[in-house]
Design a binder for these strands. Structure first.
Length: 170
DNA sequence: GCGACAG
DNA sequence: ATCTTGTCGC
């Protein structure tokens, strides 16, 4: 398993780190932190400059115990976190209008734990999860500020690309 | 037994 | 995540 972390400031990559090794457990929905937590914490701790907020492929309160991987990692690192996923884990809610910036609530019972966000017209909306020391409003603003005109936040694209390169050996 | 189920 | 199928755009 490979993990990559990049620090993006004003659209520019100002820090990057890649780390490899064995995943620490199997993939079990609801227990991602057990599988990926240790290596993700390691790769973030090695990065410089230290970020103001972490964007992760993970959920926050959309979790059986309201503690998705983004919550765990934020707590472990004492760093604000925001999650971005393709789909919710448990929460449900109708898609927002097909307009950039449109949002709609994702709820578990009466609690809104995340929001659908249409980052770009004509594409599937992303799920934005407030997590450690962030709320819905901040989470959406962080994601929108990191889009760089694309559907997916630039830090996540860069990190995926770096991890893919490392996995291929280079 | 089958589908759902972050990555 | 990974894989497969289908669509759209360059």
């Amino acid at each position: 398993m490979w993990a990559a972390a990049v620090v993006v400031d004003a659209g520019r990559i100002v820090g990057q780190r890649v780390v490899g090794g064995c995943a620490s457990g199997p993939y079990v929905p609801g227990m991602l932190a057990l599988r990926l937590g240790p290596q993700l914490e390691d790769v973030v701790r090695r990065i410089a400059p230290w970020p103001e907020v972490l964007l992760l492929d993970a959920t926050g309160g959309d979790h059986p115990r309201r503690a998705g991987l983004a919550v765990h990692l934020g707590a472990a690192l004492d760093l604000p976190t925001v999650g971005v996923t393709h789909r919710p884990l448990l929460a449900t809610g109708a898609w927002p209008a097909d307009e950039a910036g449109a949002t709609s609530p994702l709820t578990i019972g009466t609690d809104q734990v995340a929001t659908w966000l249409r980052t770009r017209r004509g594409t599937r909306p992303l799920v934005v999860h407030p997590a450690w020391r962030t709320d819905l409003d901040v989470a959406v603003r962080v994601v929108e500020a990191s889009l760089a005109g694309r559907r997916t936040p630039e830090p996540l694209r860069s990190a995926r690309q770096a991890a893919r390169r490392a996995r291929a050996g280079q």
